[in-house]
Amino acid sequence: MPYRLRSKVEIENLATKFSCWQRFGGNLSGNTKSAEEPEASSVGYGASIDGTGMSASQGNNLGWQWYTDPRLETLGFRGIFPSNTTPPLVEADKETSEQNYLQWRLEKGVAEGSTEIPKGEAVPLEYNLTGLNAISFDKGCYVGQEFIARTHHRGVIRKRLLPLKFVNESGKEMEQKVAPGSEVVYTSSDKKVGTVTTALGCRGLGLLRLEEAFKGSRILSIRGQEDVKVEAIRPDWWPAEWFPEHQQHTVAA
């Protein structure tokens, strides 16, 4: 079978004409399903439902529409709309800063982009991409497939990307005190547990060893900043087999 590996394309920058929007929040997450809010999956500047998503990429005569974020339902809906208009279902008094969405995403433990998922360095399974509809174990060969498949089927991932909260001794949130690249350590022994990969305000993401991150009453802090304590959070969307106690049981069995 012949394959066409290259073709000439023209790329046009439409950043000034279109904007990417995200609808998120407590009333759109958790148990909210696309079927329970059908208008959010189909509404746009056209009455037809665009199941192929062509309108979002090409702006055809179906209009521009909202689509469930393919990674996690808790992230809400996203869509591409003309920059000179306010998308449907967006209330004027509910529009907020992009920073608030970034914090929402960090709280859920979802990284995106090459800044948060370093190219050539990140191990997809450690960045939880199997739970974000980003990896297929059914398709044919691809670069890195053997390593990824072998690690996945062994079922033991010792490090994972976790949501982090930065607080002081009394548990009060500490803003803008931690930078990406900071090391997370046991406060008592200074033993390294992992590294902060992303930080925003009092929240962040960190690649930590699971067994040590959730080990009893051990207190975590930032190396060189002992006054900044680190709380590692278990995302509620994680499957049970990702947790350390399940992995230990699997290995023992």
Score class of each variant (00 low, 15 high):
Met1Gly: 14
Met1Arg: 09
Pro2Ile: 01
Arg6Val: 14
Arg6Met: 12
Ser7Tyr: 09
Lys8Arg: 15
Glu10Phe: 10
Glu12Ala: 12
Glu12Leu: 11
Leu14Asp: 04
Thr16Gly: 07
Thr16Ser: 15
Lys17Gly: 06
Cys20Ile: 11
Arg23Leu: 15
Gly26Leu: 06
Asn27Gly: 09
Pro38Ala: 10
Pro38His: 05
Ser42Glu: 11
Val43Met: 09
Gly46Ile: 01
Gly46Thr: 00
Ser48Gln: 15
Gly53Val: 03
Met54Pro: 00
Ser55Ala: 13
Ser55Met: 02
Ser55Gly: 15
Ala56Gly: 15
Gln58Trp: 14
Asn60Leu: 05
Asn60Pro: 00
Gln65Asp: 06
Trp66His: 06
Tyr67Lys: 15
Thr68Asn: 05
Arg78Asp: 02
Pro82Val: 14
Ser83Trp: 12
Asn84Phe: 13
Thr86Arg: 13
Pro87Ala: 05
Pro88His: 13
Pro88Ser: 14
Lys94Ala: 12
Glu95Arg: 15
Asn100Cys: 06
Asn100Gln: 13
Tyr101Ile: 01
Leu102Thr: 00
Leu106Val: 02
Leu106His: 02
Glu107Lys: 13
Glu112Asn: 09
Ser114Arg: 09
Thr115Gln: 13
Pro118Ser: 03
Lys119Ala: 14
Val123Ser: 11
Val123His: 11
Pro124Arg: 07
Tyr127Leu: 04
Asn128Pro: 02
Asn128Asp: 12
Leu132Arg: 12
Asn133Gln: 10
Phe137Gln: 04
Gly140Thr: 11
Gly144Leu: 00
Gly144Thr: 00
Phe147Cys: 00
Ile148Gln: 03
His152Thr: 00
Arg154Cys: 00
Gly155Arg: 01
Gly155Trp: 02
Arg158Ile: 00
Leu161Glu: 00
Leu162Tyr: 07
Pro163Met: 08
Pro163Asp: 10
Pro163His: 03
Leu164His: 02
Val167Pro: 00
Ala179Thr: 13
Pro180Trp: 06
Gly181Ala: 13
Ser182Gln: 08
Glu183His: 07
Glu183Cys: 05
Val185Pro: 05
Lys191Gly: 00
Thr195Tyr: 02
Thr198Val: 10
Ala199Trp: 02
Cys202Asn: 15
Leu208Cys: 06
Leu210Glu: 11
Ala213Leu: 07
Phe214Arg: 04
Lys215Gly: 01
Lys215Glu: 12
Gly216Pro: 08
Ser217Val: 03
Glu226Asn: 13
Lys229Ala: 11
Val230Ser: 06
Arg234Lys: 14
Trp237Ala: 07
Pro239Cys: 04
Ala240Ser: 11
Glu241Gly: 05
Pro244Ile: 04
Gln248Met: 12
His249Asn: 12
Thr250Arg: 15
Ala252Asn: 06
Ala253Thr: 09
